[in-house]
Write a protein that binds this DNA or RNA. Structure first.
Length: 576
RNA sequence: GGCCCCGUAGCUCAGCAGGAUAGAGCGACAGAUUCCUAAUCUGUAGGCCACAGGUUCGAAUCCUGUCGGGGUCACCA
């Protein structure tokens, strides 16, 4: 299925070919900058192209003159009602209504696939998101990344990419040892020991109690008084597995499911790190050296140390990065590099969705990927903080007391669909407020509600039509639709374009904004029926007109569903 | 101090890989609304796109610098 815009780009191409044959245009001039787009101002028509302005210089003429040559070729097409030169040399094109009727049939025919694209051409792309440390349940800090990553993955699938949804489990560092110790305490507690206050530095949350109980049931008191070395490894494994179960359950309430959970410990144990740096050493990118002292702060305890370094500055990083600590073990960065190599083996492109606090590590990671892949293959989407508000008041979260707001609580309170939609109402790198009261408000200022309402309205309309005996499968005479109604079709017809642009930019929020626009246009059309009953969708004594308008509603409903589907939001059949 | 992100209407934010007179919602102002097509509607006002240069037919968008706001600077994960 080619989009309407691609089709007219092809028509334009044909016109330019013809001009070349006629000697009006030098052959072989690059047309890369030529665009066929909907003009921003609808009064300029349905489509506009900048072809004449872009090509005028190469044609040795001025834009308006060249446009004057292109226009007759386009005007000759049946699908084009008029084409005219405008402004500095734009060509504005108006299409005959039949084009829009045809597009409506295309929506009906493609159904849930309307808007799907071959843009990705099967390119394999790995989206890594969430990757929260496996030390406890998900809290709201993880939520935005989870939704953005998941929607981005769906968007890319819709645009024709082969997508892997991946979660990197940081199960190798110091904090999972802390987790194991915390669990050991809960284990002792389950055995009836007095443990008193949870010491500073351990995880105090109650969610570790069941893990301790399970270990008590499994091992009895075998490890109760044993030295740490005897139990650390096994407790860590059990605890991480339990935390991942928690996390998976939390993510499931959001409708987020990963294809793959990759273990940092396994990456380290498998020898992948050695292999990755052997590769980089072959390229001359590994050396032993000394880093400059830290900048900004005066560092009294800093002393120059020889370390094994990766030459990330060769790829734009600010300084080279250590790959081995002075105790000989790999740094986090080293393991991360090996992990990215692992991902590259199954994918052509990588995307990491990270919290904004990881800003500082973007360059080195991209440097490592570029070194390994031979080209820049990693895009990093940083998601900014979400402030939680309750009726305008900031909800305080304290890590120390463990009184963070969990993801599960929020989903429980406002629902999965509201959370997901709301998280996509800002672009990823803008800060966001999440107000419990506002996100569930049933009013026009709440895009979540307004989009759902639009869909529910359409469904309710169809239900009533069916009850009144209208045959929704019957052929509709779309020529009965008026200009305002066709405007709505035109907006709907932009959906495939929006999908492609959003996918290319890795920006799922664009779908949400588009749906809000589409919903507003639908409501506006609907509201005309308040003043003028003849413009309602159901006209009792005019079955043909009713049928055409119902078809329009159905088409818009389909597009809303498809857009919401990408966002992972269920379309409402009715409002409450 | 280095690097990254941000600066668009009074507020909250869009602005589609450079396009024509810069948009939406809220708020303000002026009207409409005894409607089960309900959870409002119509219209108006409001802008030096932080600032200064540059690139070009054309810049909110790309480049450089300045100012202002935020984030980040580990052999941590």
């Amino acid at each position: 299925m080619s989009t309407l815009y691609a089709r007219f780009a092809a028509h334009l191409d044909d016109a330019l070919d013809a001009l070349e044959r006629e000697g009006q245009l030098a052959p072989g001039v690059a047309r890369k900058a030529v665009a066929v787009e909907p003009p921003r101002d609808p009064s300029h028509g349905d489509l506009a192209t900048n072809a004449a302005m872009v090509l005028a210089k190469a044609a040795g003429t001025n834009p308006r003159a060249l446009a004057g040559l292109i226009v007759p070729k386009l005007s000759a097409l049946d699908e084009i009602d008029s084409a005219e030169v405008a402004g500095p040399g734009f060509i504005n094109i108006r299409l005959v209504p039949a084009v829009w009727h045809e597009e409506m049939r295309a929506v009906r025919e493609a159904g849930a696939d309307y808007g799907r694209s071959k843009l990705g051409a099967g390119t394999r792309i790995n989206v890594e998101y969430v990757s929260a440390n496996p030390t406890g349940p998900m809290h709201m800090g993880h939520c935005r990344g989870a939704v953005v990553g998941d929607a981005l993955a769906s968007l890319l699938e819709y645009a024709g990419y082969g997508v892997i949804r991946e979660y990197y489990v940081n199960d190798a560092g110091a904090q999972v040892d802390v987790l194991a110790r915390s669990v050991h305490l809960r284990y002792q507690e389950a055995l009836g020991r007095q443990i008193g206050e949870i010491p500073e530095g351990l995880y105090p949350g109650d969610y570790l109690k069941p893990v301790g109980e399970a270990l008590a049931a499994e091992f009895g008191d075998a490890y109760a008084d044993a030295p740490e070395a005897a139990w650390l490894e096994i407790f860590r494994r059990r605890a991480v597995a339990a935390m991942l179960d928690l996390i998976r359950a939390d993510l499931a309430t959001l409708g987020v499911h990963h294809d793959l959970f990759a273990s940092e410990a396994e990456v380290q144990a498998s020898g992948a790190v050695d292999r990755a740096f052997a590769l980089l050493a072959d390229k001359g990118l590994v050396y032993t050296g000394t880093l400059p002292p830290p900048k900004g702060r005066p560092a009294e305890d800093w002393e120059p140390t020889e370390l094994l370094l990766f030459r990330s500055t060769a790829f734009g990083d600010d300084q080279d990065r250590p790959i081995r600590k002075s105790d000989g073990s790999w740094t986090y960065f080293a393991a991360d590099t090996a992990y990215h190599l692992q991902k590259l083996q199954a994918s052509d492109e990588l995307i990491n969705v990270w919290g904004a606090d990881h800003t500082g590590t973007v360059k080195r990671t991209q440097a490592a990927v570029e070194a390994l892949a031979g080209r820049p293959a990693l895009d990093v989407k940083l998601v900014q903080m979400v402030r939680l508000l309750r009726a305008g008041e900031l909800v305080k979260m304290s890590k120390r007391s463990g009184s963070f707001v969990t993801l599960a609580e929020v989903v429980e309170e406002v629902g999965k669909d509201v959370v997901r939609f709301t998280m996509l109402t800002r672009k990823n790198d803008a800060q966001m407020d999440f107000d419990f009261a506002k996100v569930v408000e049933a009013s026009k200022d709440n895009p979540v509600f307004y989009v759902q309402y639009a869909h529910a309205r359409i469904r309710s309309l169809h239900r009533r039509a069916e009850a009144a005996g209208v045959d929704l499968a019957a052929e509709a005479d779309l020529s009965l639709l008026d200009a305002d109604e066709l405007e709505l079709v035109k907006l709907g017809a932009q959906f495939p374009r929006v999908v492609e642009a959003a996918a290319a930019a890795h920006e799922p929020h664009r779908i949400a904004f588009y749906l809000a626009d589409l919903a507003a246009a639908l409501h506006a059309l609907w509201n005309r029926g308040n003043d003028d009953p003849s413009r309602r969708f159901l006209i009792e004594d005019n079955p043909a007109l009713t049928r055409a308008r119902l078809e329009l509603a159905g088409v818009i409903g389909q597009i809303v569903r498809n857009g919401l589907g990408i966002m992972g939001v269920a379309a409402a059949e009715e409002m409450q």
